[in-house]
Design a protein around this nucleic acid. Structure first.
Lengths: 213, 213
DNA sequence: AATCATAGAGAACACCTGTTCTAACTATAT
DNA sequence: ATATAGTTAGAACAGGTGTTCTCTATGATT
């Protein structure tokens, strides 16, 4: 794929800015003026190239019928996730309640790109308190994106409640013939074994976010 | 504020669906057909009401010049960040070039919530290759959000190139009287000391993203 | 020098589209 | 019944807008 010309890049940029600025796409003549191009036909010419490259979609005979591909109309790329509480070693994690999913009823939410949630449903977030999950490469203050699920597949990272030990831990869960193997994310560390009825899956870990101060 | 009429609600819904469907706003006549309204003037009439109520913005004499208010802000909450390469222990990290910041010219980008970048400029992303940064609680496959800066403050996490050792490491950097202290994020681990002219700050770490499979 | 692909200029056409005007039709209150 | 405000119909106008056509310019290749 050949590189875009300078003019084509300017046009892409202009459409993008115009769109997020005004909420509707520019006309050919808007682009002409905005990018300082001499003729509408030149704009048309370059738009056709951009369409062939798959950068935009054009709708014939529709005024301002330009669509930026990949920019799936803004709001769908951002998901609001409820932050329902803390997670710490010694206490069970907060469980999502029915009105957790009603963003309007939740006090604390955070915006997350859909690339991160992969379009999954029933996502919530937890703040990590304490350094007890260092072995999962998770630090104090990190944020966990969790999915509320009834069961998980082998090898997936989950928040697991250990009944006997009365603590929650983040591990990759493997069901073996007669026991459960809990494997830390840090592969240098040893797995932990326990019985099937000592554990309770509290949620599946989708992603970890850490923000530096 | 009086309630919207049934027709006005239908129009709002139609504009919303049309917009997220096609990426550009509907014309008056699109709305007329889509909402089964008898005349363009009726559409115009109701659009004026919706504008007075602050539900939409209209731009005079601009075809498809309808803007849904409230929807425009969501795109501003998402930032597109260029992913400019890999980071591994034994090699210097890719350096942002002038056209790195031109999203249209970069092949790989990812959407990130502005809550994460805190509105900072000059943000780029790196994929982590290998497990050499376990001591910074960073795993293979993680994504680093970096900021291109000329200097950093004491205690901030940075990607540091160690000239003598010929490797890059992620540490909190402290300038002490006669030496540099590099402190791992994992507080259980020992700091590393080196001389001032053995290091080269390659970027400031803004955030870490980890996605589970 | 001749050829060809790529890019640009300018103008004109035909349709799209916002706007406006007039007239008629409700519904409610007087 | 009368008046008034709110809503609807239909048509027509003027300018916006995508498209197309012809001609020109540039630059690499033969």
């Amino acid at each position: 794929m050949k590189k875009l010309s300078d003019k084509q890049r300017r046009i892409m940029k202009y459409i993008d800015r115009f769109l997020s600025d005004k909420g509707y796409p520019p006309s050919i003549r808007d682009i002409q003026k905005g990018c300082d191009i001499s003729s509408t036909s030149v704009v048309d010419y370059n738009l056709n190239i951009l369409e062939n490259r798959g950068m935009i979609n054009r709708h014939a005979d529709v005024s301002r019928g330009i669509q930026l591909v990949g920019k799936s109309t803004s709001s769908e790329r951002l998901v609001d996730v409820p932050v329902i509480g803390m997670i710490a070693a010694g206490e069970p994690i907060p469980v999502p309640t029915p009105d957790t999913w009603d963003i309007a009823a939740v006090s604390d939410t955070m915006g997350v790109s859909q690339e991160l949630t992969q379009g999954k449903e029933n996502i919530y977030a937890l703040r990590v308190k304490g350094t007890s999950m260092i072995d999962a490469l998770i630090n104090d203050g990190d944020i966990l994106l969790m999915q509320s699920v009834s069961s998980i597949e082998n090898g997936q990272m989950a928040a697991v409640w250990l009944k006997a030990e009365k603590e929650v831990t983040l591990k990759k869960v493997y069901v073996e013939s007669d026991r459960i193997r809990l494997q830390p994310a840090n592969s240098q560390m040893q797995p932990f074994y326990t019985s099937r009825d000592n554990i309770e899956i509290q949620g599946k870990v989708i992603a970890v976010l850490r923000q530096m101060k």
